[in-house]
Simulated assay, not measured.
Amino acid sequence: MFDIVGQVEWERRWSYELRWQPHYRGHGVRSREVATVAQLRAVVEWARRNPNVLRCSYKPTDHLVGDQVKMCPDGHSLEAPNPNQPYRMIQQMRMVRCATCPGHYRTVCPTCRAPVFDPPLSVECRPA
């Protein structure tokens, strides 16, 4: 049997926004993203000490990293001819939300019509 273990996974990052004093050079809003909690903590502590920062806000963001699944469980390619450009192959995916994780890309195999989820569904996952 063909192994469809996905190589895609969710990675948690944090995006932050710094709002600067109007008189400060380069005033306005500056947005960036960091990869670790330690980096976020360093930014927040720096912003608290800086008198030119009016506000520092942050939120978690999730990104998919890795390679997409290209084959269904039966070994068929998930790419199909593009209806608008028949000489090109595309993989038609749809993001489905999940109660326990950020979601999954769902692709229907063009050959056998089997649904393929990437990242793979875990026991707790219930796609909407």
Rank of each mutant, 00 (worst) to 15 (best):
P110D: 12
S57E: 14
H76W: 12
F2C: 00
V8N: 02
N52H: 15
V43A: 03
E45A: 06
C56I: 14
V37H: 08
V5E: 15
Y24P: 00
R25N: 03
P22H: 09
K70I: 12
L78M: 11
R25W: 13
P110R: 09
C112Y: 11
P22T: 01
R48L: 14
N50T: 02
G103F: 05
R25Q: 09
M95E: 11
H63L: 14
D3V: 12
N50S: 02
I90Y: 13
R41N: 05
V53H: 05
P73L: 15
V37M: 03
P110S: 06
V34N: 11
C56Q: 01
R41G: 02
G26Y: 09
M93V: 09
I4E: 11
V8T: 06
V108M: 12
C56S: 04
P102G: 03
S57H: 08
G6R: 01
W14E: 07
A128D: 15
R94W: 10
C101S: 08
Q68P: 00
L78Y: 13
N52I: 02
V37L: 02
V53C: 05
R126N: 08
P86M: 10
L64E: 12
D67S: 12
R48E: 15
A99P: 00
T107M: 15
P86H: 05
R106G: 00
D3T: 04
A99H: 03
N84S: 03
R13K: 13
E45N: 12
R41P: 00
E79M: 09
G66S: 04
P120G: 14
P60W: 08
P127M: 07
G75Y: 15
S57I: 10
G6L: 05
H104E: 06
V108W: 07
V65T: 10
F117Y: 15
L54S: 08
D74H: 06
R32V: 00
L121S: 08
G66R: 12
V37N: 04
A47V: 08
Q92W: 10
C109I: 08
Y87N: 07
G28S: 06
H23N: 04
L18T: 08
T107R: 13
Q21A: 11
R126K: 05
N50D: 13
V108T: 15
R49M: 13
E11G: 01
V44K: 14
L18Y: 13
